[in-house]
Amino acid sequence: MLNRRGALATFVTGLLASSLSRQAKAETGPMADPTEIIDLWPAGPPGGGAVTAVETLTERAAPGGLRDRALSHIRKPTLIVFRPKTPNGAAVVLTPGGGYERVVLDKEGYETARWLAGRGYTCFVLFYRMPGDGWTSGPDAPLQDAQRGLRLVRSRAAAMGFSPDRIAIMGFSAGGHVAASLTTRFAAQVYERIDAADDLSARPSLSALVYPVITMDPTFMHAGSRKQLLGAAPTPAQIDLYSPERQVTAELPPVFLLHAADDKAVPVENTLAMFTALKAKAIPTEMHVFEEGGHGFGLRFTKDKPVAAWPGLFETFAKRHGL
């Protein structure tokens, strides 16, 4: 039964990848989907024997609206590659949000990757697993994918035209928690070595956390993300381990922080707490809190708002720190 379920999951994942590739080939111009895909785990992700969820791609946009796709119950984690016409020698791994129930493709993934690629960055959109789908590693499943993804990107640096010492992680919302977890727990051994790529460091050269879920503390947590990650009644030890602001050490890379004060989904206190923790350890950090912007603005919901300045602010910060 488990073998049949695994075969079904692989078949469904293959259909999804094939569908995206066919769609990309049928489209033309800068908005076409990329067809270059890197599988994270050659023999499948670790700890998936009890996983039965079926990977599902959903189009959520209203008729005539901007494309808004989401991938849920991810069974085969991947990196989707966006290559720049003129590489600047740096790379960015993107972890879009989705409340730890799904990963959004367009708003925080592909659109951001296209913007960054237009400025010379080689970009990789990470489709990471959901912690509530039954993986043996539970809340560490997304971190496993983030560590493995960063190492695979680093292992391909020379071949793809960027420096292995100039790789950033950028995460949004719950994807911001994935990025913050990688930033603080890059050295944690959360999976067994697969190949030579795993001998490389998973530490990003720079981290950007955009309206991120940070804390698991009930005072200002994002309830949905915490429930998906840790269940209904996490222990104090779990709250501590999976709250990145409590895992900050002096070994962290520079961190860029961005939030809107009127965010009603993920309280701005998440970013404030991370900033305070970083400053306490003298980590180079820059925080921008805008009066207006709400949650999930990405690039598409910033028009005529001061928060529209954020991509340029990130680029300035990144260049100042060698990226």
Rank of each mutant, 00 (worst) to 15 (best):
R5D: 12
R5C: 08
G6V: 06
A17W: 14
A24Y: 04
A24K: 03
A26T: 10
G29T: 11
P30A: 08
M31R: 12
M31W: 10
A32S: 12
I37S: 03
D39M: 14
W41M: 04
P46I: 00
V51Q: 01
A53N: 13
E55G: 11
L57V: 15
P63I: 10
A70M: 07
L71Y: 03
L79A: 06
I80H: 14
I80M: 09
V81T: 08
K85V: 11
T86Y: 14
T86L: 13
P87H: 11
N88W: 00
A91P: 02
L94I: 15
G98V: 00
E101I: 06
L105N: 03
L105S: 01
D106R: 05
T112K: 06
R114K: 10
L116S: 01
A117I: 06
A117M: 08
G118T: 09
C123K: 04
F127C: 09
F127V: 00
Y128W: 12
M130Y: 04
G134N: 07
G134A: 05
G138M: 01
A141Y: 01
L143G: 04
L152Y: 02
V153K: 00
V153H: 01
R156F: 10
A159I: 05
A159L: 08
G161N: 09
I169M: 14
A174I: 05
G176F: 06
A179F: 04
S181C: 09
L182H: 01
T183Q: 05
R185F: 07
F186D: 02
Y191K: 03
Y191D: 03
I194D: 15
A197I: 07
A197Y: 05
D199T: 12
L200I: 07
S201T: 15
S201K: 01
Y211A: 02
P212K: 08
M216S: 13
P218E: 10
T219E: 15
L229Q: 11
L230W: 11
P236Y: 06
L241H: 15
E245A: 12
R246P: 07
E251F: 10
P253Q: 12
P253I: 07
F256N: 02
L258V: 04
H259L: 13
A260Q: 02
E269M: 14
T276G: 08
H288P: 00
H295A: 08
G296C: 02
F297H: 04
G298C: 01
L299C: 06
R300T: 14
D304W: 03
K305V: 01
P306T: 05
A308F: 02
W310H: 00
G312I: 05
K319P: 00
